[in-house]
Design a protein around this nucleic acid. Structure first.
Length: 631
DNA sequence: CTACCGACGGTTTTT
DNA sequence: CCGTCGGTAG
């Protein structure tokens, strides 16, 4: 049942734009696609094309690499729902998860000089640690390297130098100051300890060394993954680019890199300055540029273009394919004297809009440059006064951010069970998801009852859970939410065979990572138990779907909302604007381009003045965005 | 002891 | 942009 490439048609969407057709059928390609151009959709369509036409033939697979777990999961979901029969041949992972899994599975292939006697620990080096390392290094350096050692920049050492460094299989004398510094780093962090401490950059370098050391493994990887996708390519780090080049730069692997240079907002974390140009050169990639915007209305696309031109003088205008639901888009700057008035105005506006247009709170978002926890209290209070809720996606829950906790598959399974146990029917979607996830845990856990009915086991457990809920009073005043959470978590983890899942790595996490997720689940559960008055409210309060999200612009990357409140158009939020105006403007551009229909900026005297970002105000003014002073 | 000045660090993320 | 810290003048 194979479709010939000429007959293949896109699924679920009308058509592709001409550039997308070109890139879909091309070999190694570099695809530039602005905000809302449908990057993930394009990758999902290309996956369908390759799998359905047999250009990617069983047992070959497609390897899709993203930067965030969320993006990887999202892409996987799109392909899984469209092509259930091919889903096992679409591997969607983050770059870090992929390189880490290579180290975890094949660490025995490390050359003897690098052999790992004990499992590593993951740890990040603080700026202070790197500063001390570099200053000690300069003092202890042999004469030939001493003066040059002083020239190594602290903020680039790990990302650019350690990151792009190909480890030598056998110890070698340093020929340059970079050799010397990087070797010293590995000696101190890795080889001097029984239990080495590594970060993701170091794991990446070890993975690259393993593959370079084993022709057999490299051949196996290349044979398994003839097609590789890389999403958000503009944020590829030096280490990741170097890995890609070392492992996949050759005949036989076709790479599709997708991204937008104007949205490079991870430079400070070591993103390559121009990964696209390097890629086009090193891999002889064919460039494509998408012209459509399927997210934002014409007015918003025009506004975005004003900023796009600041980032790239040759930027081509995008063509909005959106028919506005609200007539004319609303784009305004609201200026306030104090933060109470700001919060109340936003809350009142949202409440009135929901009332009039019947929209859901999740159609709105509040985004800010930084420290959203400081903004949360007043906004939450003002929304509460209107009967609405705010969800701070950036909030720390144990070792995780709330956004990551809520998107986690394991957490989805646990909370799904709670939802099914506490409500009586009417949750077919949750039932399906829980059964599907349980299926994954059981097929790999060696459970004898795989063949038997998962539905039966689930029903039995749920009726047990139901009686427990019925017999257990949810007494908020007793302050026993910790005990209740512990007991409930025990029940859930016994049923899903947590220990088994952890050891078999069903959710691709190491035991300690899964333990951190479970701990965060427990913390959130305890917190939420203190706020609900009946068991059937628990799951809803946990996921808080009916709330207006508050998040950083960095967390909002790749997401979209009907109406966006861009909070803090001022020097308080944007104090670093002058320090790196280009990257700061890119961050601004990412924020602006999240909105589909309406975009409201707010500034507030009590927080900060507009002066430090006068250049951004100037662009907004030139674009005709009205300035409204309130109070 | 206090008041003021200038230098300096802080933010954004990946499992 | 803000807050903190250390030094110095009064």
């Amino acid at each position: 049942m194979r479709t010939s490439p000429a007959d293949w048609r896109p699924r679920d969407i009308e058509d592709l734009e001409p550039a997308a057709w070109g890139a879909l059928r091309a070999g190694t390609a570099s695809v530039t696609a602005g905000p809302g151009a449908g990057k993930s959709e394009f990758l999902a369509q290309r996956a369908s094309y390759l799998l359905e036409t047999g250009l990617c033939r069983r047992p070959q697979q497609i390897l899709a690499i993203s930067f965030k777990r969320d993006a990887a999961a999202n892409l996987h979901r799109r392909v899984r729902t469209r092509l259930p029969n091919h889903a096992d041949r679409f591997t969607s992972m983050t770059f870090d998860a992929f390189t880490k899994s290579i180290v975890d599975r094949f660490k025995d292939l490390l050359p003897p000089a690098w052999s790992m006697r004990h499992p590593y620990k993951i740890g990040f080096s603080s700026q202070a640690e790197i500063r001390d390392f570099l200053s000690n290094l300069s003092e202890a350096a042999p004469d030939e390297f001493r003066s040059a050692a002083f020239g190594i920049r602290q903020d680039e050492f790990i990302t650019n130098l350690v990151g792009a460094y190909a480890l030598a299989p056998e110890p070698q004398n340093p020929a340059t100051v970079v050799d010397y510094a990087v070797q010293e780093w590995w000696d101190q962090k890795y080889r001097a300890h029984d239990v080495p401490t590594v970060d993701f950059i170091m794991l990446n370098r070890l993975a690259e060394l393993i593959i370079r050391s084993s022709q057999q493994l490299r051949r196996a990887l290349i044979a398994t993954y003839p097609f590789v996708f890389v999403d958000e390519f503009q944020d590829t780090t030096y280490a990741q680019y170097s890995f890609l080049k070392s492992v996949f730069a050759h005949e036989g692997t076709t790479i599709t890199a997708v991204g937008d240079r104007k949205q490079r907002i991870m430079g400070w974390a070591g993103a390559h300055t121009d990964a696209f140009s390097e890629f086009e050169h090193d891999f002889d990639a064919q460039p494509f540029e998408f012209a459509s915007n399927f997210r934002s209305t014409r007015q918003l696309v025009e506004l975005q273009h004003h900023f796009a031109k600041r980032l790239d003088v040759n930027a081509r205008p995008q063509l909005s394919q959106v028919v506005s639901q609200v007539g004319t888009s609303l784009v305004q700057i609201w200026s306030f004297s104090n933060i109470r008035l700001e919060a109340e105005s936003i809350a009142a506006w949202i409440a009135a809009d929901i009332e009039q247009n019947g929209r859901s709170p999740s159609d709105y978002a509040m985004i800010a440059r930084q420290r959203v926890a400081d903004l949360e209290p007043k906004l939450a209070e003002a929304l509460a006064a209107q009967g609405l809720k705010l969800r701070n996606d950036d909030a720390q829950v144990g070792d995780l951010k709330l956004q990551d906790l809520l998107r986690d598959d394991f957490v989805g399974l646990l909370i799904g069970l709670v939802r099914l146990g506490a409500t009586h029917g009417g949750q077919p979607q949750t039932w399906r998801e829980v059964v599907a996830t349980l299926g994954r845990t059981m097929s790999t856990s060696g459970n004898r009852r795989v063949g038997s009915n998962i539905d039966d086991m689930l029903s039995t457990f749920l009726s047990e859970l139901r009686s427990w809920f019925a017999a257990t009073p949810l007494d908020v005043t007793a302050g026993n939410s910790t005990d209740l959470a512990d007991t409930l978590v025990d029940k859930l983890t016994t049923f899903v065979t947590y220990d088994d899942i952890a050891h078999k790595r069903v959710f691709a996490d190491r035991i300690e990572d899964l333990a951190a997720t479970l701990e965060a689940f427990k913390i959130r559960l305890t917190d939420v138990l203190g706020r609900v008055s009946s068991w059937d409210e628990l799951a809803g309060a946990f996921t808080d779907d009916e709330a207006v999200p508050l998040l950083t612009i960095h967390r909002s990357k790749g997401l979209e909302y009907h109406t966006v409140f861009f909070i803090g158009l001022d020097g308080d939020q944007w104090w670093a604007h002058a320090r790196d105006t280009v990257e700061s403007t890119m961050t601004f551009f990412v924020g602006v381009s999240r909105a589909a229909e309406r975009l409201i900026f707010t500034q507030c005297d009590q927080r900060g003045s507009p002066d430090p970002i006068a250049d951004l105000y100037e662009v907004l003014d030139k674009a005709g965005v009205p300035y409204v002073r309130i109070g």
